[in-house]
Design a protein around this nucleic acid. Structure first.
Ligand SMILES: [Mn+2]
Ligand SMILES: [Mn+2]
Ligand SMILES: [Zn+2]
Ligand SMILES: [Zn+2]
Lengths: 143, 143
DNA sequence: ACGTACAATAGTAATAACTACTATGAAGAA
DNA sequence: TTCTTCATAGTAGTTATTACTATTGTACGT
């Protein structure tokens, strides 16, 4: 994991992006995490190590990473965005009770893209799909 | 269209929800519309007829309709929600350039729900899926 | 190592969508 | 009509995110 952070930041440096401790910390945290954290969760997690770090720095760098294609942003209505450094092809299942986001694999829905293109005349660039329900632990807890 | 508005409001009356001109206007507008409008678009559209109507009234009633199952809310990250009174089974294609939302039909993705349930242990309640790309008019305009 | 240029940061103000709150007004029951 | 209750208008508050600005720090050439 640590190696690929270095690699990613080297990659960025080509485009005039400088290596800073904050940047390194945010990206490492995301790459080590499986929890799809929010900007604020990242902020709280890194605060002990970087007591003076600004929330704006978190947002700035997350946007930078997303634009560089190193991280994916997951948006959910009014709630805060979540971020995923796992670029592999996968979908998400979201628990309506506790909010946790779990990865799952499934072949990309190319059929639907084709059908949509044919019916709407769109030039399709991609799609979004996610499953909603109750995770196993919330399911046993709730009646 | 006008008939089903009456029907819907009769339905609501059973649950102690009163019929008001604003409520009627908002629901009619949504049912006549194919454009998946935002709260603000509805507000602007009805302002001439209801010059004193409050934005809060739009939000209050949209929430009421959504909770009553008369309207579906479509959420998109930071952007404002859009509302759809078409309850029939359909998906959406969204233009990344002009933002328009177009309906298209496709059989519900039950396979994916099953697969997700098996892999994650979730009790699946539903899913969200939409296509992104360029609509035909934006496609010809842009180089 | 040193100096310079300019990107990045911290801190804060601003924005935008939405919600909460409160006093006034109107439906509908009796 | 009178009373109860719900809805409305108007406004203040909330929250996530962005914009702005002065200061700091990184990288590169010397
Ligand atoms: Mn993921
Ligand atoms: Mn629709
Ligand atoms: Zn859960
Ligand atoms: Zn378009």
């Amino acid at each position: 994991m640590a190696a690929s952070v270095q690699l990613a930041l080297e990659q960025l440096k080509m485009n005039g992006v400088r290596m800073t401790p904050q940047r390194h910390a945010i990206l490492s945290y995301l790459m080590d995490s499986k929890s799809h954290p929010t900007a604020d969760e990242i902020y709280k997690a890194l605060s002990p190590a970087f007591p003076s770090m600004s929330v704006a720095t978190i947002y700035n760098n997350l946007r930078l990473f997303v634009e560089a294609g190193l991280v994916r942003e997951l948006t959910y209505g009014d709630d805060s965005s979540r971020f995923d450094a796992d670029l592999s092809d996968h979908y998400h299942a979201i628990c309506k009770s506790c909010g946790q986001i779990v990865d799952f694999g499934y072949p990309p829905l190319l059929e639907v893209e084709k059908a949509a293109s044919k019916e709407t005349g769109f030039t399709v660039q991609g799609h979004r799909m996610e499953i909603y329900g109750l995770c196993s632990s919330c399911n046993t807890t709730a009646k």
